[in-house]
Design a protein around this nucleic acid. Sequence first.
DNA 1: GAATCTTGCGAAAACGTTTTCGTGTTAATA
DNA 2: TATTAACACGAAAACGTTTTCGCAAGATTC
Lengths: 341, 341
Amino acid sequence: MKQKITLKKIAKEFEVSISTVSKALKDSHEISNELKEKIKAFADYYHYKPNSLALNLRNQKTKTIGIIIPEIVHHFFTKVISGIEYIANEKGYNVMICMSNESYEKEVLNMDMLANGIVDGIIVSVAKETEEKGEYSHFKDLIYNGIPLVMFDRVIDEIICNKVITNDIDGGYLATKHLINIGCKKIAILTTPDYVTVGALRNQGYQNALSDHNMQINEDLIIKIDDKHDIEKQIKKVFAQKNPPDGIFAVNEIYAAIAMKKAKNYNINVPNDLSVIGFTDGLISQYSTPSLSTVAQHGYHMGQKAIELLLTEIDSQDTDYQYETTIIETDLIFRESTSKV
Amino acid sequence: MKQKITLKKIAKEFEVSISTVSKALKDSHEISNELKEKIKAFADYYHYKPNSLALNLRNQKTKTIGIIIPEIVHHFFTKVISGIEYIANEKGYNVMICMSNESYEKEVLNMDMLANGIVDGIIVSVAKETEEKGEYSHFKDLIYNGIPLVMFDRVIDEIICNKVITNDIDGGYLATKHLINIGCKKIAILTTPDYVTVGALRNQGYQNALSDHNMQINEDLIIKIDDKHDIEKQIKKVFAQKNPPDGIFAVNEIYAAIAMKKAKNYNINVPNDLSVIGFTDGLISQYSTPSLSTVAQHGYHMGQKAIELLLTEIDSQDTDYQYETTIIETDLIFRESTSKV
DNA sequence: GAATCTTGCGAAAACGTTTTCGTGTTAATA
DNA sequence: TATTAACACGAAAACGTTTTCGCAAGATTC
């Protein structure tokens, strides 16, 4: 393996000191023009690049930020990452992505690893298992150690840090209200277990909308899907009853897409007999047939906001730095799966 | 900001040398039990963790590998990343993900940055622009500098390194043959410009299948989509002609999904009047209606293979190390978009 | 001709770790 | 009692860089 060229080797070549070489390459006035030219030419020829590890160690910063997400095969998260990456690169930062796979243990492992000097700050969306356990000491440790932290989407109230969240309640409200507006009388929600906070919040919005429009909240129409079991079977039940709903609000794309498929099996036409609206404007929503009306989350924008907050925290040595929570508003996208008014 | 605890600080606390502390924490026999206990307790209390940067510098390796992909909002690439990440973590490696956004310049930038000691090896799928330009010196430099490199999916023949590729020709052949088998007489292909090698290869498979079954290759049925212009418009043309095809092979999911949508606009029923088959088993294929028959690429497995090759190269100091090209075979997945025989 | 200033470079510390090699003290052996 | 062995620790180098400070030689000033 070819050895990397270092200051030391250049110094040896010209029989000067390492500091001289370093200064010459930085075009310092301390070094004679003649020597500078020679050293630069030599360095250029061998494609000299300062070793990042050494720089990081010396500067006590890495110009790298870490992201911990529950999973990467997921349109929303990749959108957020794109947004983060764009701004980060613009500001000269690199991005290290880790996956918790929704596991508490992996989340802790990843944080420990990132916290050891490798990154200047961390952006995280917390794993379902962590939410379920309610075990947050790893976040507290991080903050205690002075490492800037931004949470996005799935955030934890009791951890005090910068946050970027979707207005989930409002999104759920908008979606439900849309179904009401187009005349749906019996509206079901396909949501997550309560410990998944975003699911719970969207459900909250759903219930608020019903109440505000004097519609009854029926527990039988609130289907909390358990990912650990057969999702299709759980969704199918909605249509198996004798008086199925005429509107469905699904808290994500997948549930919505499955609902549309199942409806077809029961000869229920979307959108004529049933209107379906999802959450998150991903590929499925765009390319399904009928295409899916949905609540757009603006993941890209969310990522941008998160990294901006992180970088300002990194750059600030204020003792009275103020954390903020940015709420990204949602928008309704009308497509084919909800009937016209 | 809380200062990180270091060996130096622990040494000061006990008025011993740094080396003593280091040895004590590693349970060296050189240190008395009494002192070891005290130091360990102290270190535990303050959650001491060796600084990664210092270790990396000393060990001249980082236990981190870099991935450069064209874009992250893409099901196939995220699958590959998942596969890489799984094995990497198992072997104690971390993963740094960079995006070239299909840009040559960003690809070079990312490689330069990763090559500077930050990672022990790199896995890359090359950007379209790089393929178009045919400018590969950054890869040669990398190899010249002794940094292990694995290419996957979009690879370059003239660069000698480990590679993992889909059997694109065979995939294209299988897909086309399937359409022939179910009785399609006029089969179109929606493919990429020729410089995108995977598109060209799938097209090759398509043409081979036609030839082998004594069907004419008609240039009018070979639609090379240019991503820079309106994709829908380009695909729509297929159906605008008076005698539209009864079979379409699309080299990716998106083209397939759009084709199905456009067919519907022209009142062409899928699969009765038209059979459509895609490439890559992503979410769209699964959740579209009708669900899409497709060629499965096994991205997860591909990622696993890529990282395995990389790690063995990293671990080997053989001078006569042999590079290999692993070909991942494709499988047909039959769904609703292609009619039964 | 002495004092000062400029030029051009080197020494050394610092970042945090690991590891080899010494070295002084005490205990065991001949 | 003299030699050796065991024990417990410290010094220093190494990884590659940047930067402050010091210093010698020559040039300039009065």
